[in-house]
């Protein structure tokens, strides 16, 4: 791209940025309209968890989260469809190897803690899944060509686990007459925990497998 075009583009985008800033400023300084926050905060006690973000994610807007898990799964399927993974790296030296053997169990432990703590403080399935995925990335960097993942069939089952459990819970609730993904208050905590556990494993496996970057 020539220099003149680049300059023109820069000026136009600076203008766009100013317009966006002005709009945002106007929208925020204006008297704020009714927001979902009050509705969400009022319903947190009935959602089965006490962390408002988790209750929005897994209860009030569970559809979003279900579809998000489907998006993550679709991305992994796309990566797998592109062919086999490139071979792994050479085995690591003793320093890196011992660090890996220390950090991976710690990451898995921290992932489990994150999953549980999501009920009442910041945390939850995505953070825990990201930690599990990070454990996979570290294993792969340390020389394990499969990033610590099980064999192909098992990987496929684990990767769909999140979406499958989520959908099955939703359908079971619909069959029980509650409506799709409308949890009864008494069971909400355990249903959310079940879904989050499956989602954590699925996200961790998916991220690690995406890092491997090819069909197992």
């Amino acid at each position: 791209m020539s220099r003149d075009w680049s300059l023109l583009l820069g000026m136009l985008l600076a203008l766009l940025a100013c317009v966006l800033l002005w709009v945002l400023h106007g929208a925020l300084m204006d008297q704020p309209g009714p927001r979902l926050a009050d509705l969400a905060a009022a319903n947190v006690p009935y959602s089965g968890v006490s962390n408002p973000v988790t209750s929005v994610l897994l209860n009030f807007r569970a559809y979003d989260t279900l579809l998000e898990l489907a998006v993550v799964l679709a991305a992994l399927l796309g990566i797998w469809a592109l062919g086999p993974a490139v071979p792994g790296f050479q085995p690591s030296g003793p320093v890196l190897a011992s660090m890996v053997s220390w950090i991976v169990p710690l990451l898995i432990l921290a992932g489990g803690y994150m999953l549980w703590v999501g009920g009442h403080a910041p945390g939850g399935a995505f953070q825990a899944g990201a930690l599990l995925g990070a454990a996979g990335v570290i294993l792969r960097l340390g020389g394990d060509p499969r990033a610590g993942l099980p064999d192909e069939t098992m990987q496929r089952w684990l990767a769909v686990a999140g979406t499958a459990v989520f959908t099955l819970v939703g359908l079971a609730l619909a069959a029980a007459g509650e409506g799709f993904l409308t949890y009864p208050t008494d069971w909400a905590k355990w249903l959310i925990l079940l879904i989050e556990t499956a989602a954590t494993i699925a996200i961790g496996v998916t991220l690690a497998a995406a890092y491997v970057g090819g069909r197992p």
């Binding site: 979902l36 926050a37 969400a40 408002p52 994610l57 979003d64 989260t65 998000e68 939850g124």
Partner: peptide, 19 residues
């Protein structure tokens, strides 16, 4: 307290962006 709805959306968005 901050509005939890945008926070949840951002959390969703980060995971989608990564994948």
């Amino acid at each position: 307290p901050p509005d939890p709805v945008p926070h949840a959306l951002v959390l969703t968005g980060i995971v989608v962006a990564v994948s």
